[in-house]
Design a protein around this nucleic acid. Structure first.
Lengths: 197, 197
DNA sequence: GGGTAAATCGTAACAGTGTTTCGGATGTTT
DNA sequence: AAACATCCGAAACACTGTTACGATTTACCC
């Protein structure tokens, strides 16, 4: 038999952690196969065995980012007012972008890429979407919103995603106060339009 | 004296046209200095003399994209109902993004960290912003909407981007009718939330 | 006209990238 | 100890952004 394998799932996790660190420390441009391998104490071919290609590394970062965002949203507890829960979700969403700008850049950098129909990509954001959709459903059940649940949920998710992408590209305004106000104004307007107070 | 210069503004325009074609045909990853130079019948150093560096080429595409979007929106004529004008603008915006996903990707993602879209978009997107904010202002003047025009415009644009991202990821619904309805429902809810009837 | 000088162009080079090959190292088995 | 199967990473390959520099072309001057 051969010698013991070191290119294991454990090494994959170490590489992914190193990749996230490189991206957050030096930006996505600094993420190269050689640097990543060195940072994790291995060699470039290991990266290719474990991730396929460089796009695979970026894809893994993309997944990890949405997983972390989903976890952050999951920490929020449901309150009395489902509408305020939705606002709180949006605020947490925004805080994530502010705290991890480089990671958010990777997550929102391919806005309309004519991706190959990648079901995995949509799976990445499933937890995030689920959280928002759940709050919408509760608001509908409480009579605070009206309309088709799926339509309302899609609209809310789209607006939050659009605001996140805009802020991540620094396109939502120059002053922090203006950006924050725009999140609030936009979200409350949409909720009001769906019958919310 | 020297020989006649060929790296003129005219060549710059030919290069820019070739760059747009490459991006739309093969994606932004296929845009390399050598390919671009070959496509325009010149050599790589010409690209660097006329655009500075590769980021300069991308920046030029960014500007050209907003000019084209501004022209597309400019073709729409004002109607009687400012709210319907806004809906029509959104639909045209949507069509642009879906018809030219690669170009839209360059325009609405942050291609380079050193390239801050905020001030650049101020210059490039002037016509676009003018068109949307103008329609919002008319709606405000007609008493059909309420709020800060810039805030309202940003909210509309964010929603449009979010819906476009969802649609191009095939996440907005399976049937064309459902997708269409969701665009309409979401947009009209937002306008309603801003005081539109 | 011939020679000089200036200015332009594109070839070729440099460093660094993603990616793959392959020879040597490693451990197991007989 | 010898044979063997397997794994790893140094090195190679094609390509990238970018730049230095020699070849080439033109205008001018004597």
């Amino acid at each position: 038999m051969p010698k013991a394998k070191t290119r294991t799932p454990a090494l994959r996790e170490r590489l992914l952690a190193a990749a996230l660190e490189i991206v957050e420390r030096d930006g996505v441009a600094a993420l190269t196969a050689r640097r990543l391998a060195a940072e994790a104490g291995t060699s470039p071919p290991a990266v290719y065995e474990l991730f396929g290609d460089k796009a695979g590394v970026v894809r893994a970062i993309f997944f990890a980012g949405f997983a972390q965002l989903g976890a952050a949203l999951g920490e929020l507890r449901d309150g009395e007012d489902p509408l305020e829960d939705l606002v709180a979700l949006a605020q947490r969403y925004r805080r994530f972008i502010l705290e991890r700008p480089a990671l958010a850049g990777v997550m929102f950098s391919r806005p309309f890429a004519s991706f190959d129909p990648a079901p995995a990509e949509t799976a990445a954001g499933a937890a995030v979407r689920e959280r928002i959709v759940g709050a919408v459903r509760r608001a509908l059940a409480a009579g605070r919103l009206h309309g088709d649940p799926t339509d309302v949920a899609h609209a809310c998710v789209a607006l939050v995603h659009g605001l996140a992408a805009a802020e991540s590209a620094r396109r939502l305004g120059s002053s922090a106060a203006a950006v924050e106000r725009r999140w609030d104004v936009a979200l409350r307007a949409l909720l009001r339009g769906f019958g919310g107070g």
